[in-house]
Nucleic acid binder design. Structure first.
Lengths: 213, 213
DNA sequence: CGGGATCCCTTAGGATACTG
DNA sequence: CAGTATCCTAAGGGATCCCG
């Protein structure tokens, strides 16, 4: 038996053999946002050693989780349909880990792709269905995300675009999303800075994106 | 920063820092079935080195996932409420990994706790709600499980007890649960051996417990 | 005998430099 | 830009031993 196998005939075990190695699910997390080039993955995972990234990409390809696709004189990595089925796993992990996030530390970075997946984790489609379509432009540290909520559909894009509410916030936005801070208090405390649009829309944002703490 | 941290402020990252180490989620899987002693965990995870089991238990305790509870001149480990919230993660992993399970290999074991969690993963409460309460006695390799389905409620116990259907099966029961084999064909092929009760109840079992392959 | 701790060795992973 | 190559540390595997 291969040394890294668990020696059990069990779905959890099999899953962990395929995507349980260090860094693997973080690569999947970023690829759930969209296809990425090697360098983009390396940028989104600043602490991953290059040899490990290369090794994981090969393993995940062999496992049928992702695909190497030639793309205009370079290569992109994209999830296979089977790889995309890991989304519930990543979302469940994100929701669980959210509760254990303390205060951000100086050396911790926030990446656009991780924020995008965090928004997907926090998205409450039932709540959104009852609200009018709304576009937000969220400046979250280095990530500028255009967030469009239309009924039960959520799209997050990494670009500037027209929005009903334009705001910026730091890691403390976690306290708004968890409900620890009301929208009013978040604005008053400077956790959220409204750059354009009505303050009321911050409340709508907090209703739409919520995660228990 | 601790060497094993990922350096990102992100829920997925935090979760993987807490339960992403090798073996950790398998310990959680077994504890989701019920409190277990050190030796029981070691038996359910035959290939885990003793020092690793001891290390993981300490780490998971420090992470607030489990608790060490004195219990009649010995100790049991049980999940905290926060640890029990990992159930969706384990079930999602189990469902995903199920699809990648090939044929069982000789050195792969089946443990009662992993089978119990597999049944929970496959349980379709919507289907069960429309069926009469049913008790099954399932002999799956080394695991003798009493499975009681009553409306949307499922209980799996590790003991012999009265049942409407008593059957035994090997790892190939996977082909029944995935729908690859109908109940009739599973019986005809000897994948499922009915020891007592009506063959029809095998079909009910397959309706109640289903996982896509 | 259950519940670990210790030892030694192998291998995965981290840091950094280098190449097609 | 997209990876390899190298060197080193630390974690995991396996067996054994210990202690109440």
């Amino acid at each position: 038996m291969a040394a890294r196998e668990y020696g059990q005939y069990c779905g959890v075990t099999r899953a962990l053999e395929l995507v349980g190695e260090r860094w693997a699910l973080l690569i999947v997390r970023d690829l759930l946002v969209g296809p990425r080039r090697y360098g983009e993955l390396a940028t989104g995972l600043p602490r991953i050693p290059s040899n490990i990234l290369a090794a994981r990409l090969k393993e995940l390809q062999a496992a049928g989780v992702l695909r190497r696709v030639p793309h205009s004189r370079t290569v992109v990595y994209e999830l296979t349909p089977y790889g995309r089925e890991l989304e519930p796993v990543v979302l469940a992990l994100g929701a669980w880990g959210f509760k254990a996030m303390g205060e951000p530390r100086a050396e911790q970075v926030i990446t656009p792709d991780s924020m995008t997946m965090a928004l997907r984790t926090a998205f409450r489609s039932e709540v959104a269905s009852a609200l009018p379509p709304t576009a937000y432009m969220a400046h979250l540290g280095p990530a500028a995300l255009h967030v469009r909520v239309d009924g039960a559909a959520l799209t997050v894009a990494r670009r500037e675009a027209r929005a009903d509410l334009v705001f910026s916030a730091g890691p403390d936005i976690r306290r708004l999303v968890s409900g620890e801070l009301s929208a009013d208090r978040a604005i008053a405390a400077g956790v959220v800075q409204v750059l354009r649009g009505s303050d009321d829309l911050v409340g709508r944002f907090a209703d739409t994106f919520h995660l228990a703490a």
